[in-house]
Design a protein around this nucleic acid. Structure first.
Lengths: 206, 206, 206, 206
DNA sequence: GCGTAATCGAGACGGTACGTCCCGTCTTTCA
DNA sequence: TGAAAGACGGGACGTACCGTCTCGATTACGC
């Protein structure tokens, strides 16, 4: 969407003060819009296109970010572009909840829109260089995920091992899904359920 | 393994000069050589450079593959370019072996060379479009990993649950490492060890 | 007429399958067809296109000619591709006849089809190298033109100077038209008529 | 002189950074330099080489001209690249002067360097398409030639017919030479002298 | 009448230039 | 005076042809 948007907010702010904050926002929302519209992959979303979509000069983008990866990454980390992990259901039965979450996640995210966004995020990280790494490092992505939160809660009420590292467990569960998401196709449900079994029960024979 | 553009119909009676398998191979080995020499990242390895290194015309590359990503990906999947996972030690103590493997993997692969290659692989996947997906889908990358092999062996002698899915367990262990590898910096050893505990013992309190 | 690369020695005892005269003809007619259809300029008529149009292998063309210029030139010189100079009218009044011829030539040839063909011929000469030069040198293009014929006839009956070189006079009349044909647009009739006056009357004041 | 793609409308209020006249000039001088240095023919002078020689991006060339032919043609028509016709001697004897000029022109220009440049010019014309035609149409190439100038002067002092069209006479003299220049080899001096006789004396018997 | 040899159409080969697109920087004009 | 517009130098892309080469199939001649 381009021409129609004469945003009243940006119209007023344009007067006395520089539009800087408005432009900054416009870039992030434009980036999110382009990436979610389903028409463009990461590589197709050029800086020029973002600038045009945001109604912003290219230089304005380079004033705030070092490159496209930074823009995309900030769009993700600030929530303009959500890699929407579903919330974990709360039936009281942890295994059933996790199984439900995995299934839902697979169903929800194995749509082209979500895959494209995940790829974009990874691309941004991969091509972004050192400063994007630090951006992500500060984001505590696993620690704040719905899965980690749930596992932490279960541990705190004693249902899970006291020495459990919730972020590690969440990573063990979610990382394989993410890798599958950006690479191969949707895995079998049985494969995903095995994952839950492993994380909960471990591999040892009893 | 033939190129991604290979057509089963053409197996009948192809007219004209047949495609040169030698050129095909030369491209893959040249790609591997460039990516391994430590001098170039994925983006620095241009199609023209590959062609020059392989002593091949650029058009020949585009005759076999749709783009650079396809070339790199096939180089990986055919083993010309190895993402060298360390072998798992065999002391008899599975936990100790996996811990050792994780530590070694972290040490070995968190060198710029390995990270670069991982980034290249991911870039190829992410920019490659649909046909690279199918290439990877057929690759059984986790099923063939040293970790999956070891877990399968342990299961077969009864030390691990009979219903264990080795590839899922291997994914639970390795995927988080891969994601860290291509994104943030080297994780703490303690974080990695938590991962081993989860995969072996599970999360449940005893 | 055989191709420029034809070797008289080889005509005697050639082994193997003889060259196909049919293919040779097909190439020339295909070249003429492509160049006259109005769709292609000289540069657009590639060897590949000629081969396809003629239903002939590319190598067959290179077996007979050294390059495209040779093909086009032979097509012209053998009459497959005619640079149709109109005949000169024969009313008995030389000046009127030449004026009429000039006007008709301008009208007829300043159509895109003819211009394109003239350009093609010139291109062939310009890009063709030494052997195409000799081809043309042997063709006596001005000596055989309708204008030269007419001037020669008039000279032989004593109406023109006995020492007149008909080919030079024809060149003086036709060359400016050809150059205009391949470069600028149609000249004024008055400009063309001045040309006739100069060739007939000369420039001296009387 | 502005480029062929220049648009009169754009003269009003152009936004953004204005086009660099310096780059425009640099391209033309670089083109002339390459074509004059004797090392390259028209086909050897690639757009990339021009850009490099001019210290200019390739895109900048395509921003001003539609193709290489346009560049070369403008270089010629703006005098950056001179098709150096010799000046006509001034002994007072017009016939002797023109004969001398013809001989000198033949000697001077039938060197590979001049032929190469003439071929380049013709190639540019022939491959340039419609917009190069208009460029040339406006160029008055014959009207400004040394020969036309001399003829005009002689007419103005009454030695040549008052109704003589100098450009037509110059064309009658020079065009045959140009055509010979780009096609066959150097003509006989006698042939060239016949040309002068025709232009001065005309063809009629006296 | 059977091999030998050169041709045929077809199309891939190593090259090279093309014209387009994008990067990240710069230089204007406008509000 | 800050930002939009857009040209700049640079460089990779994917396409189109060039002229050569290699296929299987075909077609003549000489043995």
């Amino acid at each position: 969407m381009t021409g129609v948007t004469e945003d009243p907010v940006s119209a007023e702010t344009r007067r006395g003060r520089p539009r800087s904050a408005a432009s900054h926002q416009a870039v992030l929302t434009a980036t999110a819009r382009l990436l979610t519209c389903g028409e463009y992959e990461y590589d197709d979303v050029t800086v020029e296109r973002i600038a045009a979509e945001a109604g912003v000069g290219k230089q304005t983008i380079y004033r705030w970010w070092t490159n496209k990866a930074g823009v995309v990454l900030e769009a993700v980390l600030t929530g303009h572009l959500r890699l929407d992990f579903s919330p974990v259901p709360e039936t009281g039965d942890l295994r059933a909840d996790l199984l439900a979450w995995v299934s839902e996640t697979l169903d929800e995210t194995f749509t082209e829109g979500h895959r494209s966004m995940a790829r974009s995020l990874i691309s941004a990280l991969v091509t972004g260089g050192a400063e994007t790494d630090s951006l992500l490092a500060a984001s505590q992505i696993w620690e704040e995920s719905p899965v980690a939160d749930r596992l932490r809660a279960e541990r705190d009420v004693g249902r899970l091992r006291a020495d459990l590292e919730p972020s590690a467990a969440a990573a063990a569960l979610a990382s394989p899904l993410v890798l599958r998401l950006i690479t191969s196709g949707r895995p079998q449900d049985s494969w995903a359920h095995s994952l839950v079994d492993i994380v909960l029960d471990g591999a040892w024979a009893r």
